[in-house]
Design a protein around this nucleic acid. Structure first.
Length: 553
RNA sequence: UGGGUUAUAGUGUAAUGGUAGCACUACAGAUUUUGAUUCUGUCCGUCUAGGUUCGAAUCCUAGUAACCCAACCA
């Protein structure tokens, strides 16, 4: 039954490694720096790393790459853990690069003893000047010739706090003429008299990425260390350090990071959007952060499916936002409760319906019988969608218009007889007569209506605020446009409707409940919603064939 | 213009010398008490030029384009 599914290039490597006995089992890791919130690009990495662990019966660690104390905070650690768990993954161990500071220090001492690292007194500017350029070889620092003993003493003094920030660094002794800039005696340690969110003031020297990441991988016996393409030039250094240190040979593999149309996916840019007030926080429902998407109403399942569909490769990519929406709708369609809500209300009066009568009609809750039914109250006055009425019916118009017949969902077929306008010329009442024998479930009329519309009974309706979201940017790819990415922000990405009406069954529900407002889209309760003031987020619209028809003309 | 990486429909991803497939998008139709869902169909592709081969997306040669690398960030 199971179809042969093609492997991505990392799976091929793993299967080969397992087949030839290179490793008995695999261990991967997801290694975020706790300096911001996770976004959809991280989700790709999470699904990849944890997915491989699951697929091949191995394990995956969650490791915080917390080697730069001035940028990191426990706030981010907590949010990252929450997001990974929410996505549905369990880590083998929760680890921190800062747990290895002592071991890393000893590894650095080892490197010095091997004559492969030295303490340099040059300033950042001087080091940069001597580094050369991609086309011009670098030149040795005079400190490169220091003896092993001298280096040992100086490095110990760095650790002991004898020097101020920037006075000294530890560098690997490799090749100042290498065509790979990362091999021109890269910095291994720098001095930072800064408070670390976990180690406090215990350290004033901190390892650089290149002397922490691969070593942490090795300490944990990570078999496949998977990162993004921009780390390709680091791999030579990654391998060099592991070889010279004679530690567990973890191997680095790189894949292309996720790019998506109509958004930005970079911590730096997302941070700007938050700090400059273009959005209301990291979990603003317009943000491509995991927390933003969760608040917006995305399901973890839909995000995992998306990550599965986009694949893993080594070429630059730009994924259509519509694929994400497809995955979202695909999942929500299966699980969302069907309810009725009117976003732009206009009153419909059933002239031949008894003034004080109320009926309890039965309507289905979901896409199949398993969801059961609920009671929806019906009466003489209903709220219906303003856009479902036209004074003069257009071609192919299936909805309300004078003389036209429509089905009120789960209720009756009504015939539109007329309408009234207010002093501003705005339609304020639609007058209809209902056909009693067309009652839903017991229709004996033999009549049919082309269109079916949703409604809410006026005396029973609950007021609600509804927040509609559009894409955050006006252009597909801000990076390929002139100027700053913020010039392309869509100012209309949030529309708040304060006078919507929803059916009474929506009084109870949690932020975990997913709804489909019939014909209007998928919605969920926002975290700001209260029993007195319901607030809904529109997660995504339904596909709308009529809208397309209208746009054609 | 030093080094590295990558080029397959509009987008993403397969095909590991042997029928260029799948998904999204777009378009058309059927069904529908959601103009949703579901179902059916259509359009559209191997960066270029040579070469090897019975046979090339795949191998070779030469181009072209895009991205990455000169932070005491990760």
């Amino acid at each position: 039954m199971s179809e042969e599914k093609s492997l991505n290039f990392i799976e091929e490597i793993i299967e080969a490694d397992l087949a030839n006995g290179k490793y008995p089992t695999i261990l991967t890791r997801f290694p975020p720096e706790p300096n911001g919130y996770l976004h959809i690009g991280h989700a790709k990495s999470i699904c990849l790393n944890f997915g491989l662990g699951i697929k091949y019966g191995g394990k995956t660690n969650l490791r915080f790459d917390d080697t730069n104390p001035v940028k990191e905070d426990t706030e981010y650690v907590d949010s990252i853990k929450e997001d990974v768990q929410w996505l549905g993954f369990n880590w083998e161990k929760e680890l921190y690069a800062s747990d290895y500071f002592e071991q890393l220090y000893l590894l650095a001492v080892d490197l010095i003893k091997k004559g492969l690292a030295y303490v340099d007194d040059l300033s950042a500017e001087e080091i940069a000047a001597l580094k050369g350029t991609p086309t011009v070889p670098g030149m040795d620092s005079t400190n490169r010739a220091r003896t092993i003993n001298e280096n040992l003493v100086l490095f110990a003094e760095m650790k002991a706090g004898k020097y101020k920030d920037g006075e000294k660094v530890l560098r690997a002794k490799i090749d100042m003429a290498s065509p790979n800039m990362h091999l021109r005696d890269p910095l291994l340690y720098r001095i930072k008299h800064a408070h670390h969110h976990r180690t406090g003031d215990a350290w004033c020297i901190y390892p650089m990425y290149d002397f922490a990441h691969g070593q942490s991988d090795s300490i944990e016996n990570i078999t496949h260390s998977i990162c993004t393409l921009e780390f390709i030039p680091h791999r030579e250094l990654y391998d060099w350090l592991i070889e010279k240190l004679e530690i567990f040979p973890s191997e680095q593999y790189e894949f292309a990071r996720l790019n998506m149309t109509y958004t930005v996916i970079s911590k730096r840019k997302l941070l700007q959007l938050v700090n400059e007030g273009h959005v209301q926080g990291w979990d603003d429902p317009r943000m491509p952060t995991i927390s933003g998407m969760r608040r917006r109403g995305f399901t973890a399942e839909s995000i995992r499916n998306f990550c599965e569909k986009i694949g893993v490769a080594r070429r630059e990519n730009m994924i259509d936002f519509s694929l994400l929406e497809f995955c979202l709708r695909e999942d929500l369609n299966k699980s969302a409760l069907r309810v009725m809500g009117v976003l732009d209300p206009v009153k419909l009066i059933i002239t031949n319906y008894p003034d004080t009568q109320t009926e309890e009609l039965v309507s289905e809750n979901g896409p199949d019988d398993a969801y059961g039914t609920r009671i929806v109250p019906f009466s003489k006055e209903l709220w219906v969608e303003r856009e479902d009425f036209m004074e003069e019916a257009a071609k192919k118009w299936f909805r309300l218009a004078p003389g036209a017949r429509v089905r009120l969902k789960s209720a009756y077929i009504v015939q539109c007889d007329g309408f009234t306008k207010d002093e501003n010329g705005l339609v304020n009442e639609i007058h209809c007569s209902y056909l009693p024998e067309t009652k839903s479930g017991s229709d004996t009329s033999g009549l049919s209506a082309k269109g079916t519309i949703h409604w809410v009974s006026v005396p029973h309706a609950l007021p609600a605020e509804v927040r509609l979201y559009e894409r955050l940017f006006k252009v597909e790819n801000t990076a390929s446009e002139e100027g700053d990415f913020k010039e392309y922000i869509n100012e209309d990405s949030l529309k708040i409707i304060s006078n919507a009406w929803v059916e009474p069954s929506l009084q109870t529900g949690t932020t975990a409940t997913r709804y489909q407002f019939l014909r209007k889209g998928y919605f969920c309760l926002d975290k700001e919603s209260t029993a007195d003031k319901l607030v809904f987020n529109r997660t995504v619209t339904l596909k709308d064939a009529w809208l397309k028809e209208v746009k054609k003309h």
